[in-house]
Write a protein that binds this DNA or RNA. Structure first.
Lengths: 247, 247
DNA sequence: TATAAACCTGCATAAATAAGCAAAATAAAC
DNA sequence: GTTTATTTTGCTTATTTATGCAGGTTTATA
Protein backbone atom coordinates (compact mmCIF):
# COMPACT_ATOMS: atom_id res chain seq x y z
CA UNK A 1 0.00 0.00 0.00
CA UNK A 2 1.29 3.42 -0.96
CA UNK A 3 1.95 6.06 1.62
CA UNK A 4 -0.62 8.41 0.16
CA UNK A 5 -3.20 5.67 0.38
CA UNK A 6 -2.48 5.22 4.05
CA UNK A 7 -2.81 8.92 4.58
CA UNK A 8 -6.15 8.93 2.81
CA UNK A 9 -7.31 6.01 4.93
CA UNK A 10 -6.27 7.74 8.12
CA UNK A 11 -8.05 10.95 7.18
CA UNK A 12 -11.18 8.99 6.42
CA UNK A 13 -11.07 7.19 9.74
CA UNK A 14 -10.65 10.47 11.55
CA UNK A 15 -13.53 12.09 9.71
CA UNK A 16 -15.60 9.08 10.57
CA UNK A 17 -14.78 8.62 14.24
CA UNK A 18 -13.23 11.94 15.22
CA UNK A 19 -10.20 10.08 16.52
CA UNK A 20 -7.79 7.28 15.74
CA UNK A 21 -5.34 5.24 17.79
CA UNK A 22 -1.89 4.54 16.40
CA UNK A 23 -2.16 0.95 17.56
CA UNK A 24 -5.44 0.39 15.70
CA UNK A 25 -4.10 1.92 12.52
CA UNK A 26 -0.97 -0.19 12.78
CA UNK A 27 -3.11 -3.33 12.74
CA UNK A 28 -5.54 -2.13 10.10
CA UNK A 29 -2.84 -0.91 7.72
CA UNK A 30 -0.43 -3.71 8.56
CA UNK A 31 2.55 -1.45 9.10
CA UNK A 32 4.60 -0.79 12.19
CA UNK A 33 3.43 1.74 14.75
CA UNK A 34 6.49 3.77 13.91
CA UNK A 35 5.25 4.21 10.39
CA UNK A 36 1.81 5.17 11.60
CA UNK A 37 3.38 7.68 13.95
CA UNK A 38 5.36 9.11 11.06
CA UNK A 39 2.20 9.31 8.96
CA UNK A 40 0.28 11.07 11.70
CA UNK A 41 3.21 13.38 12.22
CA UNK A 42 3.20 14.35 8.56
CA UNK A 43 -0.56 14.84 8.48
CA UNK A 44 -0.34 16.95 11.59
CA UNK A 45 2.52 18.96 10.15
CA UNK A 46 0.44 19.85 7.10
CA UNK A 47 -2.44 20.72 9.37
CA UNK A 48 -4.75 17.89 8.37
CA UNK A 49 -5.16 16.34 11.81
CA UNK A 50 -4.43 17.07 15.42
CA UNK A 51 -1.73 14.77 16.78
CA UNK A 52 -2.11 13.64 20.36
CA UNK A 53 -0.40 11.07 22.56
CA UNK A 54 -1.50 7.69 21.26
CA UNK A 55 -3.18 8.77 18.07
CA UNK A 56 -4.80 11.78 16.43
CA UNK A 57 -8.00 13.81 16.56
CA UNK A 58 -10.13 15.56 14.00
CA UNK A 59 -9.10 19.16 13.82
CA UNK A 60 -12.47 20.60 12.87
CA UNK A 61 -14.13 18.84 15.74
CA UNK A 62 -11.91 20.33 18.33
CA UNK A 63 -12.24 24.06 17.79
CA UNK A 64 -15.73 24.53 16.46
CA UNK A 65 -16.82 27.55 18.46
CA UNK A 66 -15.71 30.98 17.39
CA UNK A 67 -13.46 33.05 19.48
CA UNK A 68 -15.53 35.49 21.36
CA UNK A 69 -14.94 39.19 21.05
CA UNK A 70 -14.29 40.54 24.49
CA UNK A 71 -15.10 44.06 25.55
CA UNK A 72 -12.31 45.81 27.47
CA UNK A 73 -10.10 42.79 26.87
CA UNK A 74 -6.94 44.39 28.22
CA UNK A 75 -8.54 45.19 31.55
CA UNK A 76 -10.00 41.74 31.78
CA UNK A 77 -6.67 40.17 30.97
CA UNK A 78 -5.13 42.17 33.81
CA UNK A 79 -7.74 40.82 36.18
CA UNK A 80 -7.30 37.30 34.87
CA UNK A 81 -3.57 37.34 35.53
CA UNK A 82 -4.05 38.41 39.13
CA UNK A 83 -6.72 35.78 39.61
CA UNK A 84 -4.53 33.01 38.28
CA UNK A 85 -1.84 33.92 40.80
CA UNK A 86 -4.26 32.83 43.53
CA UNK A 87 -4.53 29.32 42.16
CA UNK A 88 -1.97 26.83 43.34
CA UNK A 89 -1.18 23.29 42.29
CA UNK A 90 -3.83 20.73 43.11
CA UNK A 91 -6.51 23.20 44.16
CA UNK A 92 -10.21 22.66 43.70
CA UNK A 93 -11.62 25.76 42.07
CA UNK A 94 -15.15 26.86 41.21
CA UNK A 95 -15.89 29.47 38.56
CA UNK A 96 -18.85 31.36 37.24
CA UNK A 97 -19.30 32.63 33.72
CA UNK A 98 -18.64 35.84 31.88
CA UNK A 99 -15.95 37.12 29.59
CA UNK A 100 -13.47 37.84 32.35
CA UNK A 101 -13.69 34.24 33.44
CA UNK A 102 -13.27 33.13 29.85
CA UNK A 103 -10.14 35.21 29.52
CA UNK A 104 -8.83 33.70 32.72
CA UNK A 105 -9.46 30.20 31.42
CA UNK A 106 -7.44 31.00 28.31
CA UNK A 107 -4.53 32.38 30.28
CA UNK A 108 -4.17 29.47 32.65
CA UNK A 109 -0.74 27.92 32.07
CA UNK A 110 -0.65 24.49 30.45
CA UNK A 111 1.44 23.26 33.34
CA UNK A 112 -1.18 23.82 36.04
CA UNK A 113 -2.71 20.74 37.53
CA UNK A 114 -6.00 21.45 39.28
CA UNK A 115 -9.70 20.64 39.37
CA UNK A 116 -12.19 23.15 38.04
CA UNK A 117 -15.91 23.11 38.69
CA UNK A 118 -17.85 25.55 36.57
CA UNK A 119 -21.41 26.53 35.79
CA UNK A 120 -20.38 27.92 32.39
CA UNK A 121 -20.20 25.60 29.39
CA UNK A 122 -18.04 28.09 27.52
CA UNK A 123 -15.52 28.36 30.34
CA UNK A 124 -15.57 24.59 30.63
CA UNK A 125 -14.71 24.13 26.95
CA UNK A 126 -11.89 26.61 27.23
CA UNK A 127 -10.54 24.94 30.36
CA UNK A 128 -10.70 21.56 28.63
CA UNK A 129 -7.95 22.74 26.29
CA UNK A 130 -5.52 22.50 29.19
CA UNK A 131 -4.24 18.99 29.43
CA UNK A 132 -3.65 18.80 33.17
CA UNK A 133 -6.97 20.21 34.31
CA UNK A 134 -9.93 18.17 35.42
CA UNK A 135 -13.06 20.01 34.35
CA UNK A 136 -16.44 19.31 35.89
CA UNK A 137 -19.59 21.02 34.75
CA UNK A 138 -22.26 21.77 37.31
CA UNK A 139 -25.48 20.80 35.59
CA UNK A 140 -28.65 22.82 35.46
CA UNK A 141 -30.82 24.89 33.20
CA UNK A 142 -28.75 26.90 30.77
CA UNK A 143 -29.71 30.55 30.97
CA UNK A 144 -30.08 32.07 27.51
CA UNK A 145 -29.00 35.51 28.64
CA UNK A 146 -26.02 34.72 30.82
CA UNK A 147 -25.03 31.36 29.27
CA UNK A 148 -24.44 29.70 32.62
CA UNK A 149 -26.27 26.86 34.30
CA UNK A 150 -28.75 28.00 36.89
CA UNK A 151 -31.92 26.87 38.60
CA UNK A 152 -32.57 24.62 41.55
CA UNK A 153 -30.64 21.77 39.98
CA UNK A 154 -27.47 23.82 39.83
CA UNK A 155 -27.97 25.11 43.37
CA UNK A 156 -28.49 21.63 44.75
CA UNK A 157 -25.44 20.32 42.92
CA UNK A 158 -23.39 23.14 44.35
CA UNK A 159 -24.58 22.24 47.84
CA UNK A 160 -22.94 18.86 47.39
CA UNK A 161 -19.42 20.08 46.73
CA UNK A 162 -16.73 21.86 48.69
CA UNK A 163 -14.01 23.85 46.96
CA UNK A 164 -10.94 25.84 47.94
CA UNK A 165 -11.54 28.89 45.86
CA UNK A 166 -14.46 30.42 44.02
CA UNK A 167 -14.20 33.04 41.26
CA UNK A 168 -17.20 35.25 40.63
CA UNK A 169 -17.96 38.21 38.46
CA UNK A 170 -20.06 41.04 39.80
CA UNK A 171 -22.71 43.13 38.15
CA UNK A 172 -22.85 45.59 41.00
CA UNK A 173 -20.48 46.23 43.87
CA UNK A 174 -20.19 48.94 46.44
CA UNK A 175 -18.86 49.23 49.96
CA UNK A 176 -22.15 49.50 51.77
CA UNK A 177 -24.29 46.88 49.99
CA UNK A 178 -21.51 44.56 48.88
CA UNK A 179 -22.17 42.40 45.82
CA UNK A 180 -25.44 42.78 43.98
CA UNK A 181 -27.04 41.52 40.80
CA UNK A 182 -30.14 42.17 38.76
CA UNK A 183 -31.40 38.63 38.24
CA UNK A 184 -32.89 36.63 41.06
CA UNK A 185 -31.76 33.30 39.66
CA UNK A 186 -28.21 34.52 39.27
CA UNK A 187 -28.21 35.69 42.88
CA UNK A 188 -29.31 32.26 44.08
CA UNK A 189 -26.52 30.53 42.19
CA UNK A 190 -23.86 32.98 43.32
CA UNK A 191 -24.96 32.56 46.93
CA UNK A 192 -24.71 28.81 46.54
CA UNK A 193 -21.27 29.17 45.02
CA UNK A 194 -20.00 31.28 47.89
CA UNK A 195 -21.49 28.87 50.43
CA UNK A 196 -19.55 25.91 49.10
CA UNK A 197 -16.20 27.68 48.86
CA UNK A 198 -13.56 28.13 51.52
CA UNK A 199 -12.56 31.43 49.95
CA UNK A 200 -14.36 33.65 47.47
CA UNK A 201 -12.93 36.01 44.89
CA UNK A 202 -14.81 38.79 43.11
CA UNK A 203 -13.45 39.84 39.73
CA UNK A 204 -14.69 43.20 38.60
CA UNK A 205 -13.50 45.84 36.15
CA UNK A 206 -13.00 49.25 37.72
CA UNK A 207 -15.87 50.80 35.79
CA UNK A 208 -18.31 48.70 37.75
CA UNK A 209 -17.03 49.74 41.17
CA UNK A 210 -19.56 51.66 43.26
CA UNK A 211 -22.59 50.51 41.34
CA UNK A 212 -25.62 48.83 42.82
CA UNK A 213 -28.11 46.38 41.39
CA UNK A 214 -31.53 45.42 42.70
CA UNK A 215 -30.71 42.16 44.45
CA UNK A 216 -28.06 41.58 47.05
CA UNK A 217 -25.77 38.58 46.80
CA UNK A 218 -23.66 39.13 49.92
CA UNK A 219 -21.76 41.72 51.91
CA UNK A 220 -18.14 42.53 51.26
CA UNK A 221 -17.23 40.63 54.42
CA UNK A 222 -18.14 37.35 52.78
CA UNK A 223 -15.60 38.04 50.07
CA UNK A 224 -11.94 37.24 50.58
CA UNK A 225 -10.43 38.93 47.54
CA UNK A 226 -11.50 41.71 45.25
CA UNK A 227 -9.62 41.78 41.95
CA UNK A 228 -9.82 44.74 39.60
CA UNK A 229 -7.83 45.98 36.61
CA UNK A 230 -6.38 48.89 38.55
CA UNK A 231 -3.54 48.94 41.08
CA UNK A 232 -4.39 48.10 44.66
CA UNK A 233 -2.90 51.46 45.58
CA UNK A 234 -5.37 53.31 43.37
CA UNK A 235 -7.58 55.68 45.38
CA UNK A 236 -10.69 54.18 43.78
CA UNK A 237 -10.31 51.01 45.81
CA UNK A 238 -9.32 52.62 49.16
CA UNK A 239 -12.77 52.26 50.57
CA UNK A 240 -12.81 48.52 49.86
CA UNK A 241 -9.49 47.79 51.54
CA UNK A 242 -10.95 47.76 55.05
CA UNK A 243 -13.50 45.06 54.19
CA UNK A 244 -11.60 42.73 51.94
CA UNK A 245 -8.20 42.11 50.41
CA UNK A 246 -7.84 44.02 47.16
CA UNK A 247 -5.52 42.83 44.41
CA UNK B 1 4.19 -1.90 -27.95
CA UNK B 2 4.24 1.78 -28.61
CA UNK B 3 4.72 4.36 -25.94
CA UNK B 4 1.30 5.87 -26.60
CA UNK B 5 -0.28 2.46 -26.12
CA UNK B 6 1.44 2.01 -22.79
CA UNK B 7 0.23 5.40 -21.68
CA UNK B 8 -3.31 4.52 -22.63
CA UNK B 9 -3.02 1.25 -20.75
CA UNK B 10 -1.70 2.99 -17.66
CA UNK B 11 -4.49 5.55 -17.69
CA UNK B 12 -7.00 2.76 -18.02
CA UNK B 13 -5.53 0.91 -15.06
CA UNK B 14 -5.60 4.03 -12.94
CA UNK B 15 -9.19 4.74 -13.82
CA UNK B 16 -9.95 1.18 -12.91
CA UNK B 17 -8.09 0.85 -9.63
CA UNK B 18 -7.33 4.42 -8.63
CA UNK B 19 -3.68 3.47 -8.39
CA UNK B 20 -0.86 1.65 -10.13
CA UNK B 21 2.47 0.29 -8.92
CA UNK B 22 5.53 0.75 -11.08
CA UNK B 23 6.52 -2.84 -10.40
CA UNK B 24 3.15 -4.21 -11.56
CA UNK B 25 3.17 -2.19 -14.73
CA UNK B 26 6.68 -3.31 -15.50
CA UNK B 27 5.51 -6.90 -15.47
CA UNK B 28 2.24 -6.29 -17.28
CA UNK B 29 3.78 -4.18 -20.02
CA UNK B 30 6.96 -6.23 -20.19
CA UNK B 31 9.23 -3.22 -20.04
CA UNK B 32 11.77 -2.18 -17.45
CA UNK B 33 10.70 -0.25 -14.37
CA UNK B 34 12.73 2.65 -15.64
CA UNK B 35 10.53 2.91 -18.66
CA UNK B 36 7.42 2.73 -16.55
CA UNK B 37 8.82 5.44 -14.34
CA UNK B 38 9.49 7.58 -17.35
CA UNK B 39 5.96 6.99 -18.58
CA UNK B 40 4.48 7.92 -15.25
CA UNK B 41 6.70 10.94 -15.10
CA UNK B 42 5.40 12.13 -18.43
CA UNK B 43 1.79 11.47 -17.55
CA UNK B 44 2.28 13.33 -14.30
CA UNK B 45 3.95 16.20 -16.10
CA UNK B 46 0.99 16.61 -18.42
CA UNK B 47 -1.32 16.42 -15.41
CA UNK B 48 -2.97 13.09 -16.21
CA UNK B 49 -1.95 11.26 -13.05
CA UNK B 50 -0.50 11.91 -9.63
CA UNK B 51 2.98 10.47 -9.30
CA UNK B 52 3.96 9.13 -5.92
CA UNK B 53 6.82 7.08 -4.59
CA UNK B 54 6.27 3.55 -5.89
CA UNK B 55 3.65 4.25 -8.50
CA UNK B 56 0.90 6.71 -9.30
CA UNK B 57 -2.59 7.62 -8.17
CA UNK B 58 -5.69 8.89 -9.87
CA UNK B 59 -5.77 12.66 -9.87
CA UNK B 60 -9.23 12.62 -8.30
CA UNK B 61 -7.77 10.48 -5.56
CA UNK B 62 -5.65 13.43 -4.54
CA UNK B 63 -8.19 13.72 -1.75
CA UNK B 64 -9.73 17.12 -1.70
CA UNK B 65 -10.02 17.11 2.09
CA UNK B 66 -12.28 20.11 2.04
CA UNK B 67 -14.68 18.41 -0.32
CA UNK B 68 -14.80 15.40 1.89
CA UNK B 69 -15.53 17.65 4.82
CA UNK B 70 -18.32 19.41 2.96
CA UNK B 71 -19.68 16.14 1.71
CA UNK B 72 -19.76 14.79 5.25
CA UNK B 73 -21.49 17.92 6.44
CA UNK B 74 -24.13 17.53 3.78
CA UNK B 75 -24.75 14.00 4.99
CA UNK B 76 -25.00 15.15 8.55
CA UNK B 77 -27.46 17.85 7.61
CA UNK B 78 -29.53 15.20 5.87
CA UNK B 79 -29.57 13.14 9.05
CA UNK B 80 -30.34 16.15 11.20
CA UNK B 81 -33.41 17.01 9.13
CA UNK B 82 -34.82 13.51 9.52
CA UNK B 83 -34.09 13.58 13.24
CA UNK B 84 -35.88 16.87 13.77
CA UNK B 85 -38.98 15.44 12.13
CA UNK B 86 -39.26 13.07 15.09
CA UNK B 87 -39.48 15.89 17.60
CA UNK B 88 -42.91 17.25 18.33
CA UNK B 89 -44.15 20.20 20.33
CA UNK B 90 -43.64 19.97 24.08
CA UNK B 91 -41.42 16.90 24.00
CA UNK B 92 -38.66 16.18 26.47
CA UNK B 93 -35.55 15.27 24.48
CA UNK B 94 -32.10 14.06 25.47
CA UNK B 95 -29.07 14.42 23.21
CA UNK B 96 -25.45 13.33 23.13
CA UNK B 97 -22.59 15.18 21.49
CA UNK B 98 -20.83 15.07 18.15
CA UNK B 99 -20.96 17.09 14.97
CA UNK B 100 -24.17 15.53 13.71
CA UNK B 101 -25.93 16.53 16.91
CA UNK B 102 -24.50 20.01 16.60
CA UNK B 103 -25.84 20.27 13.08
CA UNK B 104 -29.22 19.15 14.31
CA UNK B 105 -29.21 21.77 17.06
CA UNK B 106 -28.55 24.44 14.45
CA UNK B 107 -31.37 23.28 12.21
CA UNK B 108 -34.07 23.16 14.86
CA UNK B 109 -36.76 25.68 13.89
CA UNK B 110 -37.07 28.76 16.07
CA UNK B 111 -40.73 28.00 16.49
CA UNK B 112 -40.26 24.70 18.31
CA UNK B 113 -41.11 24.66 21.98
CA UNK B 114 -39.52 21.75 23.81
CA UNK B 115 -37.18 20.76 26.62
CA UNK B 116 -33.70 19.51 25.78
CA UNK B 117 -31.40 17.70 28.15
CA UNK B 118 -27.85 17.29 26.87
CA UNK B 119 -24.46 16.08 27.99
CA UNK B 120 -22.70 18.29 25.45
CA UNK B 121 -21.87 21.89 26.38
CA UNK B 122 -21.44 22.73 22.69
CA UNK B 123 -24.84 21.38 21.74
CA UNK B 124 -26.31 23.16 24.76
CA UNK B 125 -24.92 26.51 23.66
CA UNK B 126 -26.25 25.98 20.18
CA UNK B 127 -29.69 25.00 21.47
CA UNK B 128 -29.73 28.05 23.72
CA UNK B 129 -29.92 30.19 20.59
CA UNK B 130 -33.50 29.01 20.11
CA UNK B 131 -35.81 31.20 22.14
CA UNK B 132 -38.54 28.69 22.93
CA UNK B 133 -36.33 25.83 24.04
CA UNK B 134 -35.54 24.97 27.62
CA UNK B 135 -31.99 23.67 27.77
CA UNK B 136 -30.69 21.65 30.68
CA UNK B 137 -27.12 20.46 30.91
CA UNK B 138 -26.44 17.14 32.54
CA UNK B 139 -23.41 17.83 34.74
CA UNK B 140 -20.32 15.71 35.00
CA UNK B 141 -16.67 15.57 34.13
CA UNK B 142 -16.01 17.09 30.73
CA UNK B 143 -14.12 14.63 28.54
CA UNK B 144 -11.29 16.34 26.70
CA UNK B 145 -11.47 14.06 23.70
CA UNK B 146 -15.21 13.84 23.10
CA UNK B 147 -16.24 17.15 24.67
CA UNK B 148 -19.20 15.73 26.50
CA UNK B 149 -19.90 15.28 30.19
CA UNK B 150 -19.19 11.80 31.43
CA UNK B 151 -18.33 9.95 34.59
CA UNK B 152 -20.45 8.67 37.46
CA UNK B 153 -21.94 12.08 38.12
CA UNK B 154 -23.38 12.25 34.63
CA UNK B 155 -24.67 8.69 34.84
CA UNK B 156 -26.37 9.28 38.18
CA UNK B 157 -27.95 12.48 36.94
CA UNK B 158 -29.27 10.64 33.93
CA UNK B 159 -30.80 8.02 36.22
CA UNK B 160 -32.93 10.75 37.75
CA UNK B 161 -34.64 11.87 34.57
CA UNK B 162 -37.15 10.42 32.15
CA UNK B 163 -37.38 11.66 28.59
CA UNK B 164 -39.50 10.95 25.54
CA UNK B 165 -36.75 10.72 22.98
CA UNK B 166 -33.01 10.27 23.05
CA UNK B 167 -30.65 11.07 20.16
CA UNK B 168 -27.32 9.30 20.04
CA UNK B 169 -24.43 9.13 17.63
CA UNK B 170 -22.68 5.83 16.99
CA UNK B 171 -19.05 5.09 16.47
CA UNK B 172 -19.70 1.55 15.42
CA UNK B 173 -22.89 -0.15 14.28
CA UNK B 174 -23.66 -3.46 12.68
CA UNK B 175 -26.57 -5.86 12.61
CA UNK B 176 -25.12 -8.57 14.79
CA UNK B 177 -23.41 -6.58 17.56
CA UNK B 178 -25.63 -3.49 17.49
CA UNK B 179 -24.16 -0.23 18.72
CA UNK B 180 -20.54 -0.17 19.84
CA UNK B 181 -17.97 2.38 20.92
CA UNK B 182 -14.27 2.49 21.65
CA UNK B 183 -14.32 4.24 25.03
CA UNK B 184 -15.60 2.58 28.18
CA UNK B 185 -16.81 5.81 29.76
CA UNK B 186 -18.71 6.77 26.64
CA UNK B 187 -20.41 3.39 26.66
CA UNK B 188 -21.55 3.85 30.25
CA UNK B 189 -23.07 7.23 29.50
CA UNK B 190 -24.79 6.02 26.33
CA UNK B 191 -26.28 3.10 28.22
CA UNK B 192 -27.57 5.44 30.88
CA UNK B 193 -29.06 7.68 28.22
CA UNK B 194 -30.91 4.82 26.59
CA UNK B 195 -32.21 3.63 29.97
CA UNK B 196 -33.88 6.93 30.78
CA UNK B 197 -35.56 7.34 27.41
CA UNK B 198 -38.90 6.04 26.21
CA UNK B 199 -37.52 5.85 22.67
CA UNK B 200 -33.96 5.94 21.39
CA UNK B 201 -32.65 7.15 18.05
CA UNK B 202 -29.26 6.38 16.54
CA UNK B 203 -27.90 8.89 14.06
CA UNK B 204 -25.17 7.50 11.87
CA UNK B 205 -23.70 8.36 8.49
CA UNK B 206 -23.85 5.54 6.00
CA UNK B 207 -20.09 5.09 5.87
CA UNK B 208 -20.11 3.96 9.48
CA UNK B 209 -22.66 1.23 8.87
CA UNK B 210 -21.29 -2.26 9.42
CA UNK B 211 -18.34 -1.20 11.51
CA UNK B 212 -17.57 -2.50 14.96
CA UNK B 213 -15.76 -0.98 17.91
CA UNK B 214 -14.37 -2.73 20.94
CA UNK B 215 -17.15 -2.10 23.46
CA UNK B 216 -20.81 -2.87 23.06
CA UNK B 217 -23.43 -0.29 23.99
CA UNK B 218 -26.59 -2.20 23.16
CA UNK B 219 -28.23 -4.40 20.58
CA UNK B 220 -30.23 -3.03 17.70
CA UNK B 221 -33.43 -4.13 19.46
CA UNK B 222 -32.94 -1.46 22.11
CA UNK B 223 -33.01 1.15 19.39
CA UNK B 224 -36.28 2.49 18.02
CA UNK B 225 -35.00 4.47 15.05
CA UNK B 226 -31.89 4.36 12.93
CA UNK B 227 -31.30 7.53 10.92
CA UNK B 228 -28.73 7.66 8.13
CA UNK B 229 -27.98 10.01 5.26
CA UNK B 230 -29.16 7.51 2.66
CA UNK B 231 -32.67 6.56 1.63
CA UNK B 232 -34.45 3.95 3.71
CA UNK B 233 -34.89 2.01 0.47
CA UNK B 234 -31.12 1.79 -0.08
CA UNK B 235 -29.86 -1.81 -0.07
CA UNK B 236 -27.20 -0.91 2.47
CA UNK B 237 -29.81 -0.61 5.20
CA UNK B 238 -31.89 -3.66 4.27
CA UNK B 239 -30.34 -5.78 6.95
CA UNK B 240 -31.18 -3.25 9.63
CA UNK B 241 -34.87 -2.97 8.70
CA UNK B 242 -35.86 -6.15 10.48
CA UNK B 243 -34.42 -5.00 13.82
CA UNK B 244 -35.34 -1.35 13.94
CA UNK B 245 -37.16 1.37 12.05
CA UNK B 246 -34.85 2.98 9.51
CA UNK B 247 -35.37 6.56 8.37
C1' DT C 1 5.66 6.46 42.61
C1' DA C 2 5.78 2.52 39.70
C1' DT C 3 4.66 0.69 35.32
C1' DA C 4 3.46 0.14 30.69
C1' DA C 5 2.59 2.40 26.67
C1' DA C 6 3.85 5.79 23.49
C1' DC C 7 7.52 8.53 21.83
C1' DC C 8 11.88 10.05 19.55
C1' DT C 9 16.48 9.33 17.54
C1' DG C 10 19.60 7.16 14.94
C1' DC C 11 20.70 3.42 12.10
C1' DA C 12 20.32 -0.46 8.71
C1' DT C 13 18.05 -2.21 4.82
C1' DA C 14 15.54 -2.46 0.85
C1' DA C 15 13.04 -0.38 -2.48
C1' DA C 16 12.39 3.49 -5.60
C1' DT C 17 14.41 7.22 -8.04
C1' DA C 18 17.44 10.15 -11.01
C1' DA C 19 21.30 10.70 -14.17
C1' DG C 20 24.37 9.29 -17.59
C1' DC C 21 25.38 6.28 -21.29
C1' DA C 22 25.18 2.93 -24.90
C1' DA C 23 22.41 -0.19 -27.58
C1' DA C 24 18.21 -0.75 -30.02
C1' DA C 25 14.29 0.85 -32.36
C1' DT C 26 12.04 4.12 -35.10
C1' DA C 27 11.71 7.88 -38.31
C1' DA C 28 13.58 10.75 -41.89
C1' DA C 29 16.45 11.68 -45.74
C1' DC C 30 18.76 10.42 -49.54
C1' DG D 1 17.14 0.17 -49.72
C1' DT D 2 20.61 2.28 -47.41
C1' DT D 3 22.22 5.85 -44.49
C1' DT D 4 21.59 9.24 -41.04
C1' DA D 5 19.27 11.43 -37.34
C1' DT D 6 16.21 11.04 -33.58
C1' DT D 7 13.86 8.73 -30.12
C1' DT D 8 13.28 5.14 -26.98
C1' DT D 9 14.87 1.77 -24.00
C1' DG D 10 17.59 -0.82 -20.64
C1' DC D 11 21.52 -0.89 -17.81
C1' DT D 12 24.76 0.91 -14.25
C1' DT D 13 25.71 3.81 -10.51
C1' DA D 14 24.78 7.03 -7.05
C1' DT D 15 21.11 9.14 -4.38
C1' DT D 16 16.86 9.43 -2.04
C1' DT D 17 12.91 7.58 0.27
C1' DA D 18 10.32 4.41 3.11
C1' DT D 19 10.24 1.33 6.67
C1' DG D 20 11.31 -1.36 10.69
C1' DC D 21 14.09 -2.05 14.73
C1' DA D 22 17.00 -1.05 18.86
C1' DG D 23 17.80 2.13 22.56
C1' DG D 24 16.80 5.58 25.74
C1' DT D 25 13.28 9.15 27.07
C1' DT D 26 8.83 10.94 27.96
C1' DT D 27 4.01 10.49 29.07
C1' DA D 28 -0.19 8.56 30.97
C1' DT D 29 -2.36 6.30 34.59
C1' DA D 30 -3.15 3.36 38.37
Amino acid sequence: MLKKERHAYIIKQINLHNKVLSSDLSLQLKVSEDTVRRDLHELAESGKVLKVHGGALSKSFHFPYDHIEIYAQESKREIAKKAISLISEGMIVLTGGGTTMLEMARLIPDTLEATFFTISPLVALELAEKKLLTVIIIGGELSKSSQVNMGSKAVSELSEIRVDLCFLGANGINVKEGISDSDWEVVQVKKAMIRCSAKSVIMCISEKLNSVQKMKVCGLNSIDYLITDIKSTDPRVYAYQSHTKVL
